[in-house]
């Protein structure tokens, strides 16, 4: 949603434009390891809010130098795993605190 989306809806064009402009471009993501998952050198990152959750997982795997086949379980707020296609912006608005999202990760399932 980085670029303004032209909407076919007579008013939704305004809606979409407004939504795009009010969105904070960056949100703060705080990574916390659980159990024996390795700790990141740097645990707080700013990322674009238009990203999908999937991108966040990819990023985390890269930082941990984890291969795709190695198990990694990623949660929001020590509670649940969002679908990979949910946007970070929606997650922050629903589950963030002051524009900050807490991500927990583990090598074994932690919360079901």
């Amino acid at each position: 949603m980085s670029e303004v989306v032209t909407a076919s809806l007579a008013t939704a064009e305004a809606v979409a434009a407004a939504a795009a402009s009010t969105q904070p471009k960056k949100v703060v993501v705080r990574f916390r390891s659980i159990g024996n998952a390795p700790i990141l050198k740097k645990s707080v990152y700013k990322i674009s809010s238009a990203q999908r959750f999937q991108a966040l997982i990819v990023f985390l795997r890269k930082e941990l130098s984890y291969k795709a086949t190695e198990p990694l379980f990623v949660y929001v707020n020590s509670a649940f795993s969002p679908a990979p296609d949910e946007t970070v912006y929606n997650l922050v608005r629903c589950f963030g605190l002051e524009n900050q999202l807490t991500i927990n990760y583990a090598t074994t399932p932690a919360w079901g």
Binding site: F53, Q54, I57, V58, R61, A68, T69, E70, P71, L72, F73, V74, S81, P82, A83, P84, T107, P109
Partner: peptide
Amino acid sequence: AGTANAAG
């Protein structure tokens, strides 16, 4: 990686 936790 797209499978989120699926790989695990």
